[in-house]
């Protein structure tokens, strides 16, 4: 069942008086993995903020299943969409489990005693992210990769259908980057989750996404599957660099990769 799940319709996004996006139209299906790529300051994160109602559009609408996001009670949205912002910070004396438990807030009433349902969801989130053994560790004692997984675990405890990730692999080493990307693919396949993320690493974006959206200076330059967007033409225009796009074959699979370079010789 692939249908439009999340939609931006003629959305105009502003920070104070500065217009970042004018008339954006984007549709997201259920399920898919979408990577938003583009240079710094192009407005990639701004799109995620609009999709997660952190930023209210100056005009236009964001629809979640044909209902305006601004009209749905915020805790209901939180049960469908969860977001992992770029620079999240938590008190160091929180444990991994404490942080994960915060993902259950949209399911709890005012009195907020935690239910068995909550505990099950927390256990599951910890299990998926491989943090079950670390659940009682303090956040201040974790490595960057573990910390990022702990935040992801919080987002998963919300039991979202849509997961928004803002540069999830920043600060991670190569191995942890790959682990995280594979975890994302797993969530997509096993839980039918739509993942929309901002990525800087073009090769990760090409390899793990089902669709790429390229934005530059507040304009959607290209939007389509990897074959259509991951091309010399689009990437060179997007970043103002020279690009070689090629394929490598390994174990019967082929991955598109790109190598950017500038004209100067070094």
């Amino acid at each position: 069942m692939t249908n439009t799940f999340l939609k931006m319709q003629t959305v105009c996004l502003k920070y104070r008086d500065k217009t970042v996006f004018k008339d954006v139209n984007l549709e997201f299906l259920q399920p898919e993995i979408v990577s938003i790529i583009g240079p710094n300051g192009s407005g990639k994160s701004t799109i995620l903020k609009a999709l997660s109602r952190i930023l209210t559009p100056a005009s236009g609408y964001v629809y979640l299943q044909n209902e305006s996001l601004q009209k749905i009670p915020t805790e209901c949205v939180a049960r469908t969409i969860s977001i992992l912002p770029q620079s999240a910070n938590a008190p160091g004396d929180m444990t991994v489990r404490d942080l994960t438990a915060c993902g259950r807030i949209p399911y709890q009433n005012l009195w907020g005693s935690r239910t068995l349902n909550d505990d099950a969801a927390i256990d599951e989130a910890l299990d998926i992210t491989g943090l079950t053994k670390l659940q009682n560790r303090l956040l201040s004692t974790l490595s960057g990769g573990e910390k990022q997984r702990a935040w992801l675990s919080m987002a998963l405890a919300q039991k979202p259908k849509i997961l928004l990730l803002d540069e999830p692999t920043t600060y991670l080493d190569v191995k942890h980057q790959l682990e995280l990307m594979e975890l994302i693919v797993k969530l997509h396949r096993e839980c039918d989750m739509t993942i929309i993320m901002v990525l800087h690493d073009l090769n990760h974006a090409a390899r793990y996404s089902t669709r790429l959206i390229a934005v530059k200076e507040g304009i959607v330059v290209a939007d389509g599957n990897v074959k259509e967007v991951f091309t010399v033409g689009v990437l060179e225009e997007l970043y103002d660099v020279q690009v070689v796009v090629t394929k490598i074959e390994r174990d019967g699979c082929s991955y598109p990769i790109c190598l950017p370079y500038t004209k100067e010789n070094y």
């Binding site: 903020k49 997660s52 109602r53 952190i54 915020t74 805790e75 209901c76 949205v77 939180a78 049960r79 969409i81 969860s82 977001i83 992992l84 912002p85 620079s87 999240a88 910070n89 938590a90 008190p91 942080l99 915060c102 993902g103 807030i105 949209p106 919080m154 987002a155 919300q158």
Partner: peptide
């Protein structure tokens, strides 16, 4: 507790 995690996370978990 949610506000301690930053405004964006707090919005994300459904806090006004």
């Amino acid at each position: 507790n949610a506000l301690q995690l930053g405004d964006e996370v707090a919005v994300g978990v459904g806090i006004s």
